[in-house]
């Protein structure tokens, strides 16, 4: 089962530059939808990739859905050669994205995010506006299905503040 607090703590404590996106970002913004994994956008600099690999290595990251025994190592060369990784770890399912639909790379995703305090850590979390924009851009049925709730949250939040 995905350990939300532990995953966020591990990445934060190891100073990985990341933005919380996807369903969990929506939950942090008030969504009531059920989320099974943690989605993050990570910065693709060599130093950050090294920190990311160091942070996850103790939790045995492996490609989700891949046959057992596949020669996979989550190390900097692997991350540099790829972009997006759907992983299973000892702390649960973790999706790492180098880019986000409709937003772009890490810097653009940060620009559409705000820092929130989560479990005692200051974490970049994609804004409601960013979530709506990316889900519209992704355009899959599951993304479009999330829009009515996110747009309602935007109204409620604006009326509250």
């Amino acid at each position: 089962m995905t350990q939300i607090e532990e995953l966020i703590a591990v990445l934060s404590e190891k100073r990985v530059a990341f933005v919380l996106i996807g369903g969990l970002a929506a939950n942090a913004r008030g969504s009531a939808q059920l989320t099974f994994d943690v989605d993050v956008c990570y910065e693709r600099t060599p130093d950050n990739i090294q920190r990311l690999c160091n942070a996850l290595e103790p939790f045995h990251p492996y490609l989700r859905g891949a046959p057992t025994g596949l020669p996979f190592r989550f190390d900097p060369p692997t991350v540099i050669a790829g972009l997006n990784f759907t992983l299973v770890t000892d702390l649960g399912d973790l999706d790492l994205l180098g880019e986000v639909s409709g937003l772009g790379k890490f810097d653009q995703v940060v620009a559409a995010s705000e820092k929130m305090e989560l479990f005692g850590f200051a974490v970049w979390v994609l804004s409601l506006e960013g979530l709506i924009h990316s889900k519209k851009a992704a355009g899959r049925p599951k993304d479009l299905n999330a829009l009515p709730e996110l747009e309602a949250l935007l109204v409620l939040r604006n009326q509250k503040s």
Binding site: I4, E5, I8, L24, N27, A28, R29, G30, S31, A32, M116, E117, L118, F119, G120, V125, P148, E149, E151, A152, L153, L154, V155, L156, R157, K160
Partner: peptide, 29 residues
Amino acid sequence: AIQRAQKYGVDITLLMENLKLTPTERLRK
């Protein structure tokens, strides 16, 4: 947007309750 969400089946009261919580409390929930 609220009307559209309600027609879509979104329970607005759940969202309102969630907005009363801190982000950490929302993730714990």
